[in-house]
């Protein structure tokens, strides 16, 4: 019989050794990038208490009867779904004994809040997380992303607005794309989810740590109505965080503004041409 301890120690010892340089430890540029990266991940991390992002891609063999997606806000964040497919999928999944999908499918209206409250009580490691399969591809510039991916992903022309991004990162995982742009002390996160390949309608929910408030809408010059909320909690640096959500075609788009004023946020949204997400309009 093998000795677990010996085998484990040998296995871990094979992990590369690293040299950490004192200068890199003290490099303030590195620290800043780390802080921004960490905030980004916190927003999209399933944590024991606070922000939970649960994407539900419910699958059945039936073709989607697409009903206009509605993104709504509640005290925790955003949720979306077309009621017809969500209610149908919930009952089908329950019959199939798929409790996980039933949980996801029932996330609508008053039931959602109860389910979320129960979920938040779960221990971190017991959280049920629905996710897309496959690896995540990461790019360190939008240019690199555009060169290597052919997915539709609308971003504003920040240079035209006088902004220069200090850093850019883009992540691609299946139908989900996310970008983080740092502009001085401010930063932006753009997420888009493509439901065109799902066999049913779609449902998603985004929860922000500490909850949200001040729900309102903003209609751009192109006629797209964004749903807006503010995070109740400011960032560690005292920045206000505004969250925007809109659906266009088979896509859902979410934008998070860290440290931007209402006016600046509106200007950025005006720069986003969402008609690229609507078939036949481009």
């Amino acid at each position: 019989m093998n000795d677990f301890k010996t085998t484990y120690q040998n296995a871990v010892s094979d992990i590369e050794n690293v040299h950490i340089d004192l200068d890199s430890v003290l490099d303030e540029g590195r620290r800043k990038r780390f802080k921004v990266h960490r905030k980004r991940q916190k927003l999209f991390t399933a944590a024991a208490a606070g922000g939970i992002f649960i994407l539900c891609t419910l699958g059945t063999s039936q073709a989607a009867e697409y009903v206009k997606t509605v993104i709504k806000a509640n005290e925790y964040g955003f949720w979306s779904g077309d009621m017809l497919t969500m209610s149908r999928n919930t009952s089908e999944q329950k019959e199939a004994g798929d409790e996980e999908h039933a949980l996801a499918g029932s996330m609508a209206g008053a039931e959602w809040e109860k389910e979320l409250a129960d979920t938040l009580k779960m221990e971190e490691d017991e959280l049920v997380i629905e996710s897309t399969e496959g690896e995540t591809r990461e790019y360190t510039s939008i240019e690199d992303f555009r060169e290597k991916e052919d997915a539709v992903f609308v971003l504003p022309d920040l240079e035209r607005m006088g902004y220069t991004a200090d850093s850019e990162r883009v992540w691609v995982n299946g139908s989900f794309i996310s970008a983080q742009l740092t502009i001085g002390e401010k930063y932006l996160i753009f997420d888009r989810i493509d439901y065109s390949e799902t066999k049913t309608g779609h449902a998603s929910s985004t929860v922000f740590m500490g909850g949200v408030c001040n729900e309102r809408t903003y209609i751009t010059g192109r006629g797209y109505e964004y749903l807006l909320v503010d995070s109740k909690e400011k960032t560690e640096e005292g920045q206000l965080v505004i969250h925007a959500a809109v659906s266009a075609g088979y896509y859902e788009i979410y934008v998070d503004f860290f440290g931007f004023s209402e006016e600046e946020m509106q200007q950025i949204l005006e720069q986003m041409d969402l008609s690229y997400y609507e078939p036949g309009k481009k």
Binding site: R38, I129, S131, R137, N173
Partner: peptide, 10 residues
């Protein structure tokens, strides 16, 4: 604090 969700499991 940096614990990842499945979304960012690269």
């Amino acid at each position: 604090k940096l614990w990842r969700s499945a979304w960012f499991r690269h």
